[in-house]
């Protein structure tokens, strides 16, 4: 090998090696930063609702070998419930919409317009999350809390968790709706591509035996896409789990309470990390910062799990 080639190869290999190294460092730093919190909190971190910085004017006490302020405790069951509930609501809303849009775009729109029509749907994905949050905060929440939620609470109250009180508009369902808006383009774009990649012969065979267009989609195209659909939905779930700003601005930032119905305020792990940063930096023992690192670690592991699963299910060419 020529020296120039060898040098070039070493350089690009080093760059490529950075990818696994960054992931490793990410895990290592988060574990290191959250180590005191892991020791102090134990398993109760996930099973109780008690995020409490303790008496900030007291003298630090030593508990389980760690310095904390008196009365401090860190447990995030309410964040886990809020994160999972809002993401699942988002998926429940986004999957049917995304599938409908993908089928329509791929099957019913003439190819000439299709590129532009799907472009429009996908543009929704590039609106920054803080703009979603701003719109949700200023426009959507007043609208929902005045014109939608009270009626839902009255007429759908027989369904569990749908009854009154209909709340202020900041809460679980609002977060779910906005997260769904962020997931629909992702699902629609990936699924449309998969539908278009269905072999033309299969479609023609279906039409030749007299199936209608929709029957071809439902009985031939969609059954082949079951696995990609699950994969794309999982990918969307991963995205919803880690979404921060929009949720922070519209979820009501509940502290230490579980949602009573779908209108209740919640917090998610990602949004809580931002909303608590300021006060955590004031903790003289730093335990609150270690606690935030522990939330980050838990969120990272959750999203690694979900995304690894998604990538194994989606053929690589699809997951944009």
């Amino acid at each position: 090998m020529r020296p120039g080639d060898a040098l070039f190869r070493v350089i690009v290999t080093a760059f490529a090696a950075l990818i696994p190294l960054i992931l490793l460092a990410l895990l290592a730093f988060l574990v290191h930063d959250s180590w005191p919190a892991l020791r102090f909190n134990g398993i109760e971190f996930f099973t109780r609702n008690a995020w409490n910085l303790g008496n900030q004017y007291g003298n630090p006490v030593t508990v389980r070998g760690e310095q904390v302020m008196p009365g401090a405790s860190f447990a995030i069951l309410f964040l886990i419930v809020g994160t999972l509930a809002s993401s699942l609501i988002a998926l429940l809303l986004a999957v049917p919409l995304g599938v409908g849009a993908a089928v329509f775009l791929a099957e019913a729109v003439p190819p000439r317009i299709r590129t532009y029509a799907s472009l429009l749907v996908e543009l929704l994905a590039s609106v920054p999350s803080v703009v979603f949050g701003l719109w949700g905060y200023v426009v959507l929440i007043p609208f929902l809390s005045r014109h939608v939620y009270p009626h839902m609470a009255r007429w759908l109250g027989f369904i569990p968790f749908f009854g009154p009180p209909s709340g202020s508009g900041y809460g679980l369902l609002t977060a779910g709706i906005v997260l769904a808006l962020m997931c629909v383009p992702l699902i629609a774009a990936n699924l449309r591509e998969a539908i278009e990649n269905t072999p033309q012969e299969l479609r023609e065979a279906g039409l030749a035996v007299g199936a209608t267009r929709f029957e071809v989609v439902r009985k031939i195209v969609l059954p082949r896409l079951r696995l990609p659909l699950i994969g794309v939905s999982t990918l969307a779930l991963g995205r919803a789990l880690g979404e921060t700003m929009a949720v922070l601005m519209i979820s009501g930032n509940a502290l230490n309470i579980l949602p009573q119905n779908i209108y209740s305020p919640i917090s998610t792990m990602a949004s809580f990390m931002v909303s608590q940063l300021d006060s955590a930096l004031q903790d003289p023992t730093n335990m609150a910062i270690y606690g935030i690192a522990e939330i980050g670690l838990a969120l990272l592991l959750l999203s690694l799990l979900v995304n690894a699963l998604a990538r194994l299910l989606v053929p690589r060419s699809l997951s944009a």
Partner: peptide
């Protein structure tokens, strides 16, 4: 790389 691509930005 795909995993890094979808890691939550807050983390």
């Amino acid at each position: 790389n795909d995993i890094l691509l979808s890691a939550p930005s807050i983390v």
